[in-house]
Simulated scan of single mutants.
Amino acid sequence: MLRVSAILLLSLLATFVSAIKFDLAASPSSSAYNDRKCLSQYVSENTMVIVTVKVGEGYNQRVDLEIYDDSDSMNKYATRKDVGEQGAKLAFNTHTDASIIVCFTNTLSEGFKNNAGYKRTIDVDYDIGAEALDYTKIAKAEKLKPLELELRKLEKVVQEIWDEMEYLKKREAKMRDTNESTNERVQWFSSLTMFALVSLGTWQVMYLRRFFKRKRLID
């Protein structure tokens, strides 16, 4: 029983959902894009992500959202126009190691003057990796017992932690190679600088010695 309790506790601690709730003020159509609000979450390559958005009530306001990453290719994963109170649930797999950015704009309808009273509440939930899997369907398909299902969840979480550690290990090795290469270049640059300074100093001494001899200032 102690082992079972420990496993269940670890699975509960390892599995979490990132939830954010905020108010988004409405802006005229001419400035709504500049007043947009963005949230970011770093996600590894080929990871399943589910973004669930709930939008509160708002009169004559249109909430749009866009999901993309900050990689060089700027992969765009989803766009939704006029997300109403029914909300939206968007699922996708990431294409690269990057931060997933979710941006919201709240556009005020034409003919309405902007004031602080126009705003809508945005509720965003991130389900990433193991969190995004539908374990109810898995349990039904494979006929798993509750304990076996918790072990499956824990196995997935541990695998993600292992993959993250491997990624960090590669990053550390890459940074170490970069540091060693930089140190080697600095050493070569220092050696060339010292050689140039010594050569220039020797040439100056010899030039001044010849100059003073021509002027008969020294023997």
Rank of each mutant, 00 (worst) to 15 (best):
F16C: 04
D125E: 14
E172P: 03
N114D: 15
K37A: 09
D82M: 05
P28K: 07
D23Q: 13
S29D: 00
A196N: 07
L200I: 02
G84E: 11
L200R: 02
L144K: 01
G201F: 03
V17G: 11
G87M: 15
E166C: 12
F16I: 12
Y207E: 03
G117H: 05
C103S: 05
S99L: 13
A88P: 09
A25K: 12
K137Q: 14
E110F: 06
N60G: 03
D134F: 09
E172S: 14
N46K: 08
D69R: 02
K137G: 10
A78D: 09
A6S: 04
S191A: 13
K89V: 08
A78C: 09
I101D: 00
L65I: 12
E155A: 09
I50N: 01
K169C: 15
D219A: 11
Y68E: 03
L147V: 03
E45D: 00
E180D: 01
S191I: 07
L10C: 14
A141Q: 15
M1Q: 04
H95V: 01
Q187I: 03
V43C: 02
A25S: 10
V158F: 13
L108R: 04
F195L: 08
R152T: 06
E155P: 06
K81T: 05
R152N: 02
L9Y: 13
S11H: 07
R216C: 05
